[in-house]
Simulated assay, not measured.
Amino acid sequence: MLPEALIALAMSGGTAVMTAVGTEAWEGFRGRVAAWFGRGDARREGAELERLGRTAAELAAAEGGQLERVRIRQEASWQARFEAFLEDLPEDERERAGEALRELLAEHATRARAQVSAGDGGLAAGGDVRISAQEGSVAAGVIHGGVRIGHPQAPDPSQG
C-alpha cells in the first residue's frame, strides 16, 4: 500500500496528463512523463509515449457528450497507472520516483499557469477566480482541474 502522499501524487499525475492533452505544453510534457515512467529504459519510454499518444487520439476523436466521459475515464486510468507504477517500485526507489514526479508536476504547473487561455464564452485563469451572485441571482461555474477550499483570509486591520 502506498503512503497517502504518493497516492495524492499519482492522482495529480493523472490530472496533469488530462490538462496537458491538446495544449501547447503537451509534446514536452508527454516526453517528460514517458521518461519518468521509462526510468532510463528506452523501450519502456517508447511504450509510454505510445500510450500517451493513444490517450490524446481518443480524446481528439471523442464527440459532444462523449468527451467528458472519455476525459474522466482517461484521467482515472492515468491516476491508476501512476499509482501502480509507484507501488511496484522497491521502497527506496519509490521515494526517489515520488520526488521526481513531484518536481515534474510542479514544473508542469508553472508552465501551465503561464499558458492560460479560453475559447468563446469561456474564462480561464492562472490564479483564483471568485464567483458570486447578488440576492435573487444565480452564479455557476464548471471546474476542470484542482480546487482548493479554505477560509478566506482576514482583512488587514488597516482595511477596517
Rank of each mutant, 00 (worst) to 15 (best):
G126Y: 02
A118T: 05
S77H: 11
V33R: 09
H108D: 10
A57K: 12
G121Q: 05
R43M: 08
A61I: 02
A25G: 08
D88S: 14
E50G: 02
A76S: 11
R51W: 04
Q115F: 01
A47D: 14
A114C: 00
G31L: 07
A106Y: 01
R54M: 07
D88C: 01
R54A: 04
D92V: 14
G40S: 05
D41M: 00
L101H: 02
D128M: 06
R44P: 00
E99K: 12
E27G: 03
R73K: 14
A133T: 09
A114E: 10
Q79C: 05
V33N: 07
R43K: 15
L101Y: 01
F37P: 06
D41G: 06
G64P: 05
V33T: 15
G126R: 03
G65C: 01
G126I: 02
D128C: 00
D128Q: 11
A57I: 00
A34M: 04
A109I: 00
A100G: 03
A125E: 04
L52E: 03
V70H: 12
Q79N: 11
G98D: 04
G122P: 05
A97D: 02
V129F: 08
A109K: 13
G119N: 09
R54L: 10
A35K: 15
A124L: 01
F29N: 09
S77Y: 11
R102I: 01
S117V: 13
E103T: 13
E95S: 12
Q79A: 11
D92H: 14
L104Q: 08
R96A: 14
L86C: 07
L101N: 01
F29R: 09
G46V: 03
L59Y: 02
G122N: 01
G22T: 10
R130L: 15
A35G: 12
E50P: 00
A34Q: 12
A109D: 15
W26F: 11
L49S: 08
D41P: 02
A84K: 15
L105P: 05
D128S: 11
